[in-house]
Design a protein around this nucleic acid. Sequence first.
DNA 1: GTTGAGCGTT
Length: 235
Amino acid sequence: MSHFGRSGPPDIRDTYSLLVLNITFRTTADDLFPLFDKYGKVVDIFIPRDRRTGDSRGFAFVRYKYADEAEKAVKKLDGRNVDGRDIMVQFAKYGPNAEPISRDDHRGKDSRRRSRSRSRDRYYERDRHRGRERDYRHRSRSRSRSISPDYDRGRGRGRDDDYRSRSRSVDSASPRHRSPSPGRSLSPRRTPSSREASPDRRSPAKRSPPPKSASPRGRQSVSRSPSPRNSDADE
DNA sequence: GTTGAGCGTT
């Protein structure tokens, strides 16, 4: 039974999802299955992995059949050392099937765990190593996930659209209608030629044309080299 | 081969 997360959600009718955080990047559903299944009936386990690299993200979703067992696993496995790392088990809330588990959430002391979650100083420090994908400057999985769930409240989409339409007439700050760029660097002097177009980087004659091989025709020979002695042989 | 707060797929 290790088909978790391979064929999508099997059946999520009355299952409770648990979010397992702080797990090692090598931990797989098979490793968590025997662990969570011991405390209850695990319906499915899913571990989001990176589609680009294929590595685990560091957290998994354990779906339980009953909230009782799920809660038990949370209290039992929460903080348990797995693979050398203390995992954190908690009920999923942003999931697609975020069950109203808050029913039995009378603990009233879970807010304390938020202490360490506030410690987010570094964001891209990890990207530095994974910089493999320089084109992926946009990470959807970033912790900047939208705003509070309440933010959606009262944010009528249609209303905004209407407002935008109106503002278009008044503001009409068309970005492309900008002034004809008076200060456009049109190059005061556009000399398409004569300007050291191809300066030889390592050519011995990088400097101006020498008075010697500049004009082998004899131009210099007549006006500059009247003395055969001073020609090139300076012995 | 690395990282470490968080919230999910056929």
